[in-house]
Simulated scan of single mutants.
Amino acid sequence: MKIVRTILVTCTILAAIALSLGSLSPYVSPKDFWPLAFFGLAFPFMFVANFLVLVFWAIKKRKLAFVSLAAMLITCWNVPSFFQFHALEVPETNQAQLVNVVSFNTHYMGAYDYSGGDSGFFFNMLDTLDPDIICLQEFANLGGNYEKPMFKRFFNQYKNFATVNADALSKTFPTGYGVCIFSRYPIINKGYLELENQNANLTVFADVVIRKDTIRVVSTHLKSIVFDKEDYKTFEELQDVEESPETYKVRRIFSKLKYAFQDRAKQADKIRERLLVSPYKVILCGDFNDSPTSYAYHTIRGKMKDSFKESGFGMSRTYIGKMPSFRIDYILHDPSYQSFHYRTNTLNFSDHKMISCTIAIP
């Protein structure tokens, strides 16, 4: 029994330490110390683990319960980034300009692994949301039989919107694979905000005129992990108690995660640098490929508000692919704005949910 108790005590202490390290992850760049990023990724799971440990020791009436309790109290300020219980549905002022914003990684409209007809639902949702600004990632027509009609219908539906397309900004730079902005409002300037990763992951901006104000709208796609079929199979093996994946496969996954953390940190630093000198207030949307307890999210957000934290409800998972689900898609905005009616919608041609909200601009 003494051995069992020693193991339980050790696990309790390690869980508390892991949770505490996860809460520090947003403040340390993976370029400087990458292991901390893994603790940030695991934060919600470690919080739940500490809660279960707390309950266990409380039932046993042991003082060790205070170890888990202390760790949870110290780190609980991160919880609203994962769970929300107050969905704000109406703006606090009726004098504001209301702007409907949609952000969506379309996964090339299902070009790679389409599994059923959701095109009608997609356009019905857009009709319901009536977006004024649409920020898209992985919105490139690869010419398949399924996605071609969807692109045609989309461009026809929003033919009067002003646009920014990463691929159209430069004929010499490698493709942006569909990082786009569509705006009901006039665009007076546009361009790249950062080009740290010369491949499919980059950031564009559009300066749009809303009433008498000019607002900088940003659409970003931070570095993807680029898991392949073999990696996803390894995840399945990890979840199967009867199978154990080979060590080198697990190491390969950790290696991909490590370098993706570091690449996103470079992008985040550049985006923050550009946002600090922006001549206008900002609405920023995109696929960060990282959780709310990450350096990338914390750095880019700065003092901006997170629309999910402002008006979301419940647990918002936006990635719904084959690996553990996280909130990795965001709509951020200037702190002087107010967002409400945050929503997510699942389309089965994408491994991301479409997110939307309404932003009140005073």
Rank of each mutant, 00 (worst) to 15 (best):
M1N: 14
I3R: 02
V4R: 13
V9F: 08
G22N: 00
L24I: 12
Y27V: 06
L36H: 09
A37F: 01
F39L: 15
F39M: 09
G40W: 03
G40Y: 03
A42P: 08
A42L: 13
F43P: 15
F47G: 11
A49I: 06
V55D: 02
F56V: 07
W57D: 09
I59S: 05
K61D: 10
K63C: 12
A65I: 10
M72L: 14
V79L: 14
P80C: 10
E89W: 11
V90C: 02
E92T: 13
Q95H: 14
N100A: 15
V102D: 00
S103P: 06
F104E: 11
F104C: 12
N105F: 06
T106K: 01
H107K: 02
G110A: 05
A111V: 12
G117C: 05
S119Y: 13
F121T: 13
F123I: 12
M125G: 12
M125W: 12
I133K: 01
F151P: 04
N156Q: 05
N160C: 09
N160H: 10
N165P: 08
D167Y: 01
A168G: 07
F173G: 02
F173D: 08
F173R: 13
G178H: 01
V179W: 01
S183I: 07
I187Y: 03
N189S: 15
N189Y: 02
L193S: 11
L193G: 06
L193N: 07
E194D: 15
L195C: 00
N197G: 06
Q198G: 04
Q198L: 15
N201P: 15
F205A: 05
F205L: 07
D207G: 12
D207R: 06
V209S: 09
V209E: 14
I210L: 03
K212I: 08
V217R: 00
S219H: 02
K223S: 15
S224R: 07
I225E: 03
V226L: 10
Y232D: 04
Y232W: 05
E237P: 00
T247S: 14
T247A: 10
R251D: 14
R252V: 11
S255W: 12
K258I: 12
F261E: 09
A265N: 01
K270S: 08
K270C: 09
L276H: 09
Y280R: 05
I283W: 00
D290R: 01
D290L: 04
Y295V: 05
R301M: 10
D306T: 05
S311P: 11
S311Q: 09
F313V: 02
M315L: 09
Y319E: 03
P324F: 05
F326E: 01
D329V: 07
Y330N: 10
I331N: 00
I331W: 02
H333M: 03
D334F: 08
Y337C: 09
H341T: 12
Y342C: 04
R343D: 13
T344I: 07
I355Y: 00
C357Q: 10
T358Q: 06
I359A: 00
A360W: 07
P362N: 11
P362F: 07
